[in-house]
Each structure stands twice: as structure tokens, then as C-alpha cells.
């Protein structure tokens, strides 16, 4: 999968990016979806909370946090969504299908924490 976030041409040195500007996670990273419980609005379904996942793809472009968007914020600071992979057996301990079956979902950066590979 090509990484569209790397600018073409020779890499610059000394460049400092603003907070949230560059994706924090890369494809292949191991992460955990956080287990917090916001009220009012959220887009991380309850069944995904606290589950371990693997980052599969960075979603471009970066976007406003949808929890804030739901209360009328249409612009301002943005972060990335990531398409993450979670095995069905991680979500549903009693899952009866093959161990290879899995789920994919987009999760906002602030909902992911890195775990050691």
C-alpha cells in the first residue's frame, strides 16, 4: 500500500510538524482501541472498546474529530483515521467461525494507544 503522506522528492531534514499533522501510526503497528465511554455522541461502537488491533491503512485526508463534529465543529484541528483489523475471536470469545475471520473499522487517532509489538 503506498503511503501518500510522504512528500515526493528528497527528504528534508530539520522539519518539525505541527501536533496532529502527521499520522502517529503506520500500517503494521499494533494498537489497542481505548475503553473509555463518552456520552452524547461517539463513533467507536461499544463492541470495539478495549480490543487489540493491527493498523492496516492510514485514511487520508485527516479529519475533524467526529465527536466534536456532532456538536457543530466543521473546521479546525484534524487528525487521522486508521483502518484497523481485529480478529473476530478478539471481539467475541465464543466466536465459532475460523480463526482467520476478522473485522475492519476506521478509528480516530485519539482512540488508539500503541502496544509493544
Amino acid at each position: 500500500m503506498r503511503d501518500d503522506t510522504i512528500p515526493a522528492g528528497a527528504p528534508l531534514t530539520g522539519m518539525v510538524f505541527a501536533e496532529g499533522e502527521r499520522p502517529v501510526f503506520s500500517p503494521g503497528d499494533k494498537a489497542r482501541i481505548l475503553a473509555r465511554s463518552p456520552v452524547g455522541h461517539y463513533r467507536v461502537p461499544t463492541y470495539m472498546r478495549g480490543k487489540f488491533c493491527t493498523v492496516e491503512k492510514i485514511i487520508e485526508p485527516a479529519a475533524v474529530d467526529n465527536e466534536e463534529e456532532a456538536f457543530g465543529r466543521n473546521a479546525g484541528s484534524k487528525r487521522h483515521y486508521y483502518r484497523v483489523a481485529v480478529p473476530m475471536s478478539e471481539l467475541w470469545p465464543e466466536y465459532k467461525g475460523p480463526a482467520t475471520d476478522g473485522l475492519r473499522i476506521e478509528v480516530y487517532e485519539t482512540w488508539l494507544e500503541r502496544v509493544p509489538a
Binding site: A63, Y81, R83, P98, D101, L103, R104, E106
Partner: peptide, 15 residues
């Protein structure tokens, strides 16, 4: 069949 992996995509936001 069981030798075919199922991938369910739950769409939630931009995609």
C-alpha cells in the same frame, strides 16, 4: 467455506 476468510467492514466515519 471455512477455508475462506471473512472480513467484515463496519463503516463509521469518512470511508
Amino acid at each position: 467455506p471455512d477455508n475462506v476468510e471473512i472480513r467484515v467492514s463496519d463503516s463509521t466515519a469518512l470511508v
